[in-house]
């Protein structure tokens, strides 16, 4: 569904993604794992066109994305939940969701589906989003991305700074979305969260993606985590 081939991205003169390649299928959760600064967030931003690719290809169902302007990428059906949520904090919950709905001119039924996953947001529609709790903000960031009715969802550290109950909610939603056939590319630091939700994992090291492994490989060989993430 989403195929990245030999992608090279630079920050100034520094090469942050080096011949980065991976393939993401419909109905699966692929998790990018790696140390801080390895290039995981850069990979997601590059897919969204927010960081221009120097060379290489990003294809969504055969359509090349690297030639598109950044604002055209989400219109192809890619939802992005950025690190730190990046809500429009002075807009209300409803207005944040409206921005998502405007992206591909999706209907109210898409909004209803998102609100079914996060019923708490329905009670907060008129509230300024910057005043929500951390967990509610993460729900809103995810719901906003779902409002574009994406076939691919990029989630950048969705459990960062959340309480365990909220982490469980986010995990359940990710699994539901996977079961609906969405392709999910997840950047996650919490190994327990990765083990409970991912189908495959891809280690990212110095801007390079290693071949993806089934998540069972992590359980079978814990030394992989020590080697690539620095935890045992």
């Amino acid at each position: 569904m989403l195929e990245i081939t030999d992608l090279n991205v630079y920050h100034g003169s520094s090469r942050t993604l080096k011949d980065f390649s991976l393939a993401l299928n419909a109905g699966e959760v692929l998790c990018l794992l790696g140390r801080n600064g390895a290039g995981k967030t850069t990979a997601l931003k590059s897919i969204m066109g927010l960081l221009p690719a120097q060379s290489g290809s990003i294809r969504l169902e055969g359509r090349e994305l690297t030639s598109l302007r950044p604002y055209e990428v989400p219109k192809q059906g890619i939802g992005y939940v950025p690190q730190g949520r990046r809500l429009f904090s002075e807009l209300t919950v409803q207005e944040n969701l409206d921005i998502g709905l405007m992206t591909r001119k999706t209907g109210r039924d898409v909004l209803e589906n998102a609100l079914k996953l996060f019923p708490r947001l329905r009670e907060r529609l008129g509230q300024v989003s910057g005043t929500l709790s951390g967990g509610e903000q993460q729900m809103l960031a995810t719901a906003r991305a779902l409002c574009i009715d994406p076939s691919v969802i990029l989630l950048d550290e969705p459990t960062e700074g959340l309480m365990p109950s909220m982490i469980a909610t986010i995990r359940d939603v990710v699994l539901q979305l996977r079961d609906q056939g969405k392709a999910i590319l997840l950047v996650e630091q919490r190994v327990d969260a990765v083990l409970s939700v991912a189908d495959r994992v891809c280690f990212v090291e110095n801007g390079k993606a290693h071949p993806a492994l089934p998540v069972a490989a992590l359980r079978d060989d814990p030394s992989l985590l020590e080697r690539y993430v620095g935890v045992s």
Partner: peptide, 13 residues
């Protein structure tokens, strides 16, 4: 409020 995120939601900044 956030031009980068706006682009990620289809707004031609």
């Amino acid at each position: 409020f956030d031009s980068e995120t706006a682009q990620a939601f289809g707004i031609p900044v």
